[in-house]
Amino acid sequence: MKNRLRVLRAEREWSQADLAQRLEVSRQSVNAIETGKFDPSLPLAFKLARLFEISIEEIFSDDELRG
């Protein structure tokens, strides 16, 4: 699953640590999600969407649907 987390974070000039603090997770979690090594659960995805004030689909995209 691809995501725009790095871009969204950069737009707000947040470091991985800043985002981790806002999400109440470890920095490693943010890094793993950004690099696609870990797909977040639905609750965490919703939390990200609320934080960035956009929909989940605007953050994450399904590789298979894109072909």
Partner: peptide, 9 residues
């Protein structure tokens, strides 16, 4: 553990 990634690791 509340951090699902750390739990997975």
């Amino acid at each position: 553990e509340k951090d699902e990634f750390q739990k997975s690791v």
